[in-house]
Computed example of a mutant assay.
Amino acid sequence: MPKLTLKIDADTYRGTREGVPNLVRQLQRHKANATFLFSLGYDHTGWALKQIFRPGFFSKVSRTSVVEHYGIKTLMYGTLLPAPDIGKSCAQFMRAVRDAGFECGVHTWDHRVWQDNVRTADTQWTEETMQQAYGRFHDIFGVPPGTHGAAGWQMNDYAFSMLDQFGIAYSSDGRSQLNEDGSLADPDAGPYRLSAGGKTLSCVQLPTTLPTLDELLGRTIRGTPIDTSNVAALLLRLTAQPRDHVFTLHAELEGQKLAPIFEQLLAGWKAQGYELVSMGDYYQSVKDDVLPILPIAWGELPGRSGDMILQSM
């Protein structure tokens, strides 16, 4: 049975308090597993305004209704409103996810700060930031994190090496390359190990192989405008041919206003014969002794602005 891994990023204070519990209930109804990755420090979502000069930013904002999905209050955190400490104020919501039987891992300390700075950051900044997230996770859950998924699919050589130092066996820090219609550019895309700093790293990468909803909504693909009425059908066409996949969703989107679309996807993937699993479930099926070893690569994907970690071809 092919596996479809559900990787849930909780980027914000609101997403952790509202979207995460919604997703837990929805997954339980469908008897689906998933991995929740938490932002454990401050919510500086308002600092995203610095991106206004980045190519493609305005088109993405207009396509995905950022204000509608994130809310005005969230978009003011770190600017007109103080940034809430997610880990301190939402620890009970995170532990409730674990208590419901779902895998929990580290997304980042501060999503905005990590996404904007890590690519060019030095060793000290990277280690200190990751240690903050590692320590906060341990404070909340009483155990070290078992997995990781980088905010904005942004990393650097030091960050990848830190995963090995933390003893993290598997992580999902990047993406597989996609065609304009969302299909995989490389039919062999999937788990791999990285070569960084002159050595092969132990941590197995489980790249996201499908486009995200916010990358599809509002675009025109093969002459068809994509909106909330047909985006689920598009994704289900991309998974019609059975193979293992990793899908990234967001507590702020699928956990709130886009929940009806995720409902269609859960039902559709079950009908297609997929086992809906966590990252840990998927990793258990991966033969890591025969995985390709690939260099760190960067590039853009359709529907998303800026470079991110991509699986090299």
Rank of each mutant, 00 (worst) to 15 (best):
T147L: 04
S89Q: 02
G105L: 05
S65C: 09
G146I: 15
E127Q: 14
E128G: 03
C104A: 13
Q92A: 10
P82N: 06
V97Q: 10
D85P: 04
V67D: 00
Q92Y: 04
V67C: 11
I86W: 02
D110A: 13
F141P: 00
D116K: 02
K88C: 12
H111P: 02
D116H: 11
G135E: 13
P145S: 08
T74K: 14
Q124Y: 05
W114F: 09
T129I: 04
H107P: 09
V67G: 07
Y70G: 05
L80C: 06
V113L: 12
V106R: 03
T123Q: 15
A100Y: 03
A91Y: 00
T129P: 01
G101N: 15
D122I: 08
A96D: 11
C104F: 02
L75V: 03
P82V: 10
R136T: 01
T126Y: 09
W125M: 12
A121H: 04
W114K: 03
A133R: 00
D85K: 00
Q132D: 04
G78I: 00
T74F: 06
H138A: 14
F137V: 04
V113G: 04
P82K: 11
M76P: 00
S89C: 03
D116Y: 08
P145A: 08
G135V: 10
V97T: 10
W125R: 14
R119L: 06
V66M: 10
P145R: 02
D85M: 05
V106W: 06
A91I: 00
W125G: 14
R95Y: 01
V143Y: 07
V113P: 01
D99N: 15
H69Q: 15
F141Y: 01
G78E: 08
V67R: 15
A83H: 05
R136P: 05
R98F: 07
R119T: 11
V143D: 07
H111Q: 08
F93G: 07
Q132K: 15
R112F: 12
Y70R: 12
P84H: 10
F102D: 13
G71K: 11
R95E: 03
G78W: 01
H148Q: 07
M130A: 09
D116A: 13
G105K: 08
A96R: 11
W114C: 07
V106P: 04
L81R: 13
W114V: 02
Y70F: 15
Q92M: 08
A121M: 04
M76I: 15
E128L: 02
T147R: 03
G105D: 08
T108Y: 06
H148D: 07
C104S: 11
R98S: 09
E128C: 07
L75G: 01
G135M: 00
K88L: 07
A133S: 05
L75W: 01
A133L: 03
F141L: 02
T129Y: 04
D110L: 04
V97P: 01
T123D: 14
Y77V: 08
V66T: 15
H111F: 06
H148V: 14
G87M: 03
W114E: 00
A133H: 02
K88Y: 12
H148A: 12
T123G: 08
Q131D: 13
A91H: 02
H107V: 09
W114G: 03
A83N: 11
P145C: 07
Q115H: 15
C104P: 06
H107G: 12
S65W: 07
T79Y: 11
